[in-house]
Design a protein around this nucleic acid. Structure first.
Ligand code: FES
Ligand code: FES
Lengths: 155, 155
DNA sequence: CCAATCAGGACTATCTTAGTACTATAAAGG
DNA sequence: CCTTTATAGTACTAAGATAGTCCTGATTGG
């Protein structure tokens, strides 16, 4: 139920393996994380597109975090690898499901989706890495309070 | 990202179409919801297995909610249709991913998963149906506070 | 009996995910 | 400049999950 893809988890592992400010090659990252090089390479390209990492080409090139780990959220990573939020089929920009006319629950799911997204947006790479202590989930109430429902746009 | 399957949404629509205490045939439900009969039938069987609906066989048989809509949660529905929680590949009972040795983030994802699950468990079928007003998401803090992480067992 | 209706499972088509391969481009360094 | 080291872009394939269908058997009401 409700799972993130394996690639998203890999992406997180990859980002976690980067030391802030230090250029690291894809090969080096693959070695450190034990993920296959082609996969690491592909994911890093996607993360670069999303602006989560900077890349430097050429000999002695590599990748580095585009910003501090505290400023990279779980939602950012998921967006980069899996695309934008859409808890339900018909929730996205132009998603339709054929039973919209009779469907009474779609809008609610969307709100739930928003709430979950807020939780993930509040969870930074730093948080994911801290192995000691408890995860203190954000208060989702403020997430949707006062916001009327409207179709999500690409983030 | 992070989507529930179309079938889960259908299941919710189906449950929402049932009037508490009234027996309704699969054919009737299919008609009301505009979902194909074979699909409705299949989903109702799964919901029956999960104990969310009662079934009566034979002529004039049908299905009815096993308990009040307020006592059926979104998490129940997702569990029934998609199986148990596992936000990450290696989070489940015996899931392994080959990079566990080097992975530093798996446990955190699992905590996030628990938090999301708590939110879904607090959302009843009644809530999903209420079209007016705001969804007031539950406070996820209490969800994981004080609970040390341990492998999830099937609910 | 007969018709309606659920139970169980097998089966197929389609889509998504995961992983691979190949070519092009850019920079470093002798 | 030319070679080496690296990323960029893209296309492809295999495997798996999802969505949907169909059939055969069991149960009940009339
Ligand atoms: S299932 Fe599509 S609008 Fe609800
Ligand atoms: S990816 Fe498997 S333990 Fe983290």
């Amino acid at each position: 139920m409700l799972r993130i893809s394996k690639l998203t988890d890999y992406a997180t592992v990859i980002l976690a393996s980067l030391t802030a400010g230090v250029l690291t090659s894809a090969a080096e990252i693959a070695e450190r994380t034990r993920i296959g090089l082609p996969t690491v390479s592909k994911l890093l390209k996607e993360l670069q597109h999303a602006g989560l990492v900077d890349s430097v080409r050429g000999a002695r090139g590599g990748y580095r975090l585009a910003r501090a780990p505290a400023l990279i959220s779980a939602a950012d990573i998921i967006d980069a690898v899996e695309g934008p939020v859409a808890l339900t089929e018909c929730a996205g920009d132009d998603g339709h499901c054929g039973i919209e006319a009779t469907c009474q629950v779609g809008q609610r799911w969307q709100q739930v989706s928003l709430a979950i997204r807020s939780a993930l947006a509040a969870l930074s790479l730093d948080d994911l890495l801290t192995r000691t202590g408890q995860f203190d989930p954000p208060d989702l109430r403020q997430a949707s309070a006062g916001t009327a429902w409207r179709p999500l746009v690409r983030s």
